[in-house]
Every structure is written in C-alpha cells, then in structure tokens.
Amino acid sequence: MPETRKIALLIDCDNVRHTAIEGVLEELAKHGTVNVRHAHGDWNNPSLSGWAEKLHPHAIRPMQQFAYTKGKNATDSAMIIDAMDLLYSGNVDAFALMTSDSDFTPLVLRILESGFPVYGFGEKKTPRPFVDSCSPFIYIENLVVEDTADSGASSVPARKTKSRLRQDSALVKLLRTAVSQAADDDGWANMGQVASYIANNNSSFSSVNYGYRRISDLIKATELFDIELRNGTAMYVSDPRG
C-alpha cells in the first residue's frame, strides 16, 4: 500500500471565509492526511469570531499575528515564513493554501519548484495568477457547508447544465483536446488518462468548480462524448466528431 501523503493546510483567515472549511478538509482527504492545520490571523480582531468557532472541532492551530502597523498585512508575511519552515522541515509532502490573496503566488511557485503540489482554495474574487499557479484550485463557494435541519448536511456544489457547459468554449476545447491526445488508434481514450492529461496541462483545473466531483461526471454531463464501460470497471471516452 502506498504511503499516505502528508498535507500542510495554511489558512489566511484575514481574507477567506470560514464557512467552507469542512468542504476543504473533505476535498483534501482525497489526496492524503492533513497533519498540519495552521490558521493565521489577528485573533484579537472580532471579525475572526467565525473562524475561532471552527478551530477546536477541526483540530486547527491558531497562529497569532498582531497587526503592528495599520494598513499592513502582517499575516501574509507570517504565513509565508510558516510555509517555508514547513517546506524545509521534511514533515510534509504537499501544501494547501486557503486564501484569496494573489500575493501568495510567488510562494506557490517556490513550493512547486521544490516538487511539492499546492492545492489552492479561495473565493471567486481570487486573482487569476494565484488560481493558475495552484494544482488544482477550487473556489470555496462550491464547498460551503450550509446550516440545515439535518445536522452535518452539506450543500452539493451547484452543477452547471449541459447547455451552460457547452457554452464554455475554454472548457469544451480543454476536454476535446484531452480526449484527442489520450486516444488510441481506435479513437477511444481511457478516462484515467484523459484526467491525467488535463492535470498535467492545466494543473489548476478542477471539476468541482463546475459542480462535479469527478472529471468523468463532468464529461458525461456535457453529452459531447461517447462513453463506454469495459470489463465492468474501465471507462473509455470518444469524441464522435472523429
């Protein structure tokens, strides 16, 4: 059995909402164990009260950073230092940054250069440079847990309809290119290889941002491709356009 990947989650509490933390942890559980959970911010600030309520239930360690100078974001610097300390510690195999601040783009690039994946989580206001540098990046609006009568119930990401998916020219081009590049001589491509091609060529892409947990579900939803199940488990996809 392969060794479980150890992930360090660093949260910029100053500019990202607390309502998605459950969804973020669930998403990271697909990739490994989040053994480091640090939440950075000025905990004397009343605006972080929502985050304060999330610390104990999710075993998140608060990292206090006082705002020494008005108008300056000391949290960013502290979080970068924390990340570099962890990078050199040898105790983690991957990083997850929960922030909507593009100032962390150089940090992501530095971590990637060391061979560590960086999973990004932020609001839809997050600037493209930071989004594009992560591998992948998921908008937290798709991971928000709603308070409902059913305790522990979480919202299902809003799925885009077939028509809306087809209207997304960048998405359609990406999917068709991936299927074409992964296809054998018979025109059929293994779904796993299609997913690998997308991950290797567009590392920030995530099907979750379209409301689908798996790339295979997203491809099916477009209804642009032929799908075939082989040997009961192996899924293959083909572009009928040839």
Rank of each mutant, 00 (worst) to 15 (best):
I7M: 06
L10S: 04
C13P: 02
R17G: 15
H18E: 09
H18C: 12
H18F: 13
A20G: 02
E22H: 14
G23R: 02
E27S: 09
L28I: 07
L28H: 07
L28M: 08
K30Q: 13
K30F: 12
H31E: 15
H31C: 06
H31Y: 15
G32C: 01
G32D: 06
T33K: 10
N35M: 07
N35W: 02
R37E: 01
A39I: 06
A39S: 00
H40G: 06
D42N: 14
N44R: 15
N44D: 15
N44K: 15
N45A: 14
N45W: 09
P46K: 03
L48S: 07
W51E: 01
E53N: 13
K54E: 15
H56M: 13
H56N: 14
P57C: 09
H58S: 03
I60W: 00
I60Y: 05
I60V: 07
R61D: 02
Q64D: 03
Q65W: 01
F66Y: 13
A67D: 14
T69N: 13
T69H: 11
T69I: 12
T69A: 15
K70A: 14
K70G: 07
G71W: 10
G71F: 12
A74I: 04
T75N: 05
D76S: 06
S77C: 07
S77I: 10
S77G: 04
M79T: 04
I80M: 15
I80H: 10
I80Y: 08
A83R: 11
M84E: 10
D85Y: 12
D85K: 13
D85W: 12
D85M: 12
L87V: 09
N91C: 11
N91W: 11
V92I: 15
D93W: 11
A94D: 10
A94N: 11
A96Y: 04
M98A: 13
T99G: 05
D103S: 11
T105Y: 03
L107P: 09
V108C: 04
L109A: 11
R110M: 07
L112D: 10
S114C: 14
S114L: 12
F116V: 10
P117I: 08
P117E: 09
V118E: 05
G120W: 03
G120I: 01
G122T: 01
K124C: 00
K125Y: 04
R128W: 08
P129K: 08
P129I: 03
P129M: 05
F130M: 05
F130R: 01
F130L: 14
C134R: 06
C134W: 01
C134K: 00
S135I: 03
P136C: 10
F137G: 01
